[in-house]
Design a protein around this nucleic acid. Structure first.
Lengths: 195, 195
DNA sequence: AAATACACTTGATAAATGTCAAGAAAAAAT
DNA sequence: ATTTTTTCTTGACATTTATCAAGTGTATTT
């Protein structure tokens, strides 16, 4: 059940097996049905999640009442409302399963306890955060080029997430790319013609 | 000379004065003239910087040869090409001083040494990275709403960076916001009329 | 299998913003 | 102080993309 996570942890740092067992023992397991929220705005959110299986999206609801998809997360990634988690605030975003999903969660309290008890764990987490930070910076690099056309943004997504393109429903992908669903539909048509 | 940085470090964690001295003793000080690059694409970049005084921007050059401003950094912030720094790669972005600037730099080697020698320092850096990560996520939240109009993006910037609006030249600000300089100019005109 | 709901496509039109070009204002250099 | 350079503004026009509306196709439910 925890194979993917264990592999993930072992790749990232030289934790003792006993420490890994310790960490895994505190995890809560949840199954989320497609279209259900894993986390909703306003909820207390003192945990981070590991997506063992499935696919999900982050979204916020803007002033006009529209859902804006701001992030897509595929299996074997950590996710959650990092800001709410770290600041002890309630969630400012919603996380919805786009496929039936299988997740593990760890609380803030447990995480802090492990920082004290397992120094190598704190180092590992620091490195994990560094990597996620870099990912975020890369995303900014791309999105901030919003002078880029809709086509260029879609192409870029195709290149960097080839496997997600067909898993993420068009409405959410268009929202993620910041374009109208109709526009994305037309772009796709163009592409299949050319290719 | 290091007052701002010392204050910054003390706010972030309970480091011993001796440790702070140790950290400061390895810093290199540089003065950068306005319009000069602090870091250029392709350069080795095994240091991070603390901006003691001044203002700078990150930019990349796209396929069309246009500069795209992707980040703005004001004084008393850490900055650098985090990806290149952490992965030991050469820089993929340029950092230019928009005002005469005054910076300190720390090498990757020194940082890693301090992680081992000063456990509280590693914890502090973890927290700093967490904060910068959250900042990056908030930026994504905003920019990914690029379905938002140019006006809305400018308003948002006004609200979140009121002090920068008049320090950053229009061309760079427009590039940062992902809109044409002419469009930004017209937006400003509208705003001054209304207000 | 039929009915219903949901997701995507297509067309017509409008609105927003980019592009090009020229001129005004401000800043920097002499 | 004058000249030169740089930055910003303004106008006209083209292009992209959003919006609205209707229809088609695909899943899901009964």
């Amino acid at each position: 059940m925890f194979n993917a996570l264990i592999k993930n942890l072992k790749q990232r740092g030289a934790l003792a097996d006993a420490d890994i067992d310790k960490i895994i023992s505190v995890l809560k397991v949840r199954h989320i049905k497609k279209k259900k929220n894993i986390l909703s705005e306003g909820e207390q959110s003192n945990f981070m999640f590991f997506l063992n299986e499935g696919l999900c999206r982050y979204y916020v609801i803007d002033e006009k009442g529209n859902e804006q998809t701001i992030e897509l997360v595929a299996e074997h990634n950590w996710f959650g409302d990092a800001k709410a988690f770290l600041a002890g605030e309630t969630a400012r975003l919603n996380i919805e399963a786009l496929e039936d999903s299988h997740i593990f969660s760890i609380t803030h309290a447990d995480l802090n306890r492990f920082y004290d008890e397992i120094p190598l764990f704190e180092r590992m987490v620091r490195k994990i955060i560094e990597q996620y930070f870099i990912k975020a910076l890369e995303r900014i690099k791309k999105v901030s080029r919003s002078s880029y056309s809709a086509q260029e943004r879609y192409k870029e997504f195709l290149k960097s997430h080839p496997k997600l393109v067909n898993r993420v429903p068009l409405v959410y992908l268009s929202s993620y790319l910041g374009i109208a669903p109709e526009t994305l539909s037309r772009l796709r048509q163009q592409f299949t013609k050319t290719a």
